[in-house]
Computed example of a mutant assay.
Amino acid sequence: MDTEAQHTERDPSSPADPQPDPASDDGSRSVRVSGAPEGPDTSPGPGTDAEPEADPDTGRGPSWRRTGLLGAVCVVFLLLLSHFVAQPFLIPSGSMEPTLQVGDRILVNKLAYRFSSEPRRGDVVVFDGTGSFVQEEPTGDPVTGLLHDTAAALGLAAPDETDFVKRVVGVGGDRVVCCDATGRLTVNGARVQEPYLTPGDRPSDVPFDIVVPPGTLWVMGDHRSQSSDSRDHLGNPGGGVVPVDKVVGRADWIVWPFGRWTTVSESDAYDAVPPPPAGGHQVGPRGRAHG
């Protein structure tokens, strides 16, 4: 059998292949896939940015939409957590040094006093000073205020001008006096050794003698020479004391920077302080503002 391939020659009498018509669609195509259905060319032209379509198998949209939705959910969750459970606060001043330093971010436990418990002597608390430390609530642009409040609630901005962090020195009924013959603070007659004070600071440069009204707190900073606290507002409406219901929560943790990540230690400085007498102190409140 002859297995050699036979060459087919063109019949010289057959007509030449027709030239492609420039106006025809076939003339604009260089390659046609055999067996592919014909139809309009829908592929994007050069330089065209095609929007990513949802995957027909998974139904997922573009990744940036998922990322944006996830980010929004996280922000809402953090805001709810900040409002009801624990809120971060940025420390803007040195009034609580060395316990809290400028730039520290603390986490305030809002559940600490939620269930019938009240602040105790020695607690470091954050409170709204409107009506005690600040007589009028600041006004400003509502949009800017909302953005600032959101950032402050996430610990990304300084707290409102009405928010303060101080240490509780006296609770309702206590008589707080400074200073005794040895230069110490006394509460209900008991001398208090304050290890948390800034080294070199005295308990107070100005004497005072105050009986704390029921339902209020006498608060002071740990850096006494740099702290504007209850002493400074003795002559103001409210007498410098802070209503218990204005307390936001107890500062329990330092969460930033990482090198200072720790708990805010409870102080045993007031363990020996007796409760106020049942009939109240016989000496009325008196004092003068801290200069």
Rank of each mutant, 00 (worst) to 15 (best):
D57R: 10
C179M: 11
G284Y: 02
D149K: 15
V143A: 14
P213D: 10
L78I: 08
P88M: 13
T48Q: 14
D163E: 15
R105Q: 07
P98D: 14
V168N: 05
D17E: 10
S227Y: 05
P277N: 15
K166L: 06
A36P: 15
M220T: 02
P12M: 11
V126G: 00
D25K: 06
F208P: 00
T216K: 07
G249A: 12
A86E: 09
G291N: 09
G280Y: 15
H281E: 03
T216N: 07
N188S: 05
G145T: 14
V124S: 08
P257T: 02
V169L: 09
P203R: 03
P56I: 01
H148P: 03
T99H: 14
V247C: 05
A289T: 12
P40M: 11
K246D: 13
G284A: 04
G239R: 07
P207H: 04
V125T: 02
A278K: 14
A5T: 12
G131S: 08
P138N: 09
A112E: 01
P257D: 08
H83V: 10
R167M: 08
P119C: 09
A158T: 15
E194I: 00
E118V: 15
R10L: 05
S132W: 02
L78E: 01
R286G: 11
P274H: 07
T182M: 03
T186F: 01
H233E: 00
R32I: 14
R66N: 04
R32W: 14
H83M: 15
G200D: 08
P213L: 11
P37Y: 00
Y196S: 05
R191V: 01
W261M: 07
L100C: 06
Q282P: 13
P40Q: 11
T8Q: 00
E38P: 15
L79W: 05
V165W: 04
Y196V: 03
P142G: 12
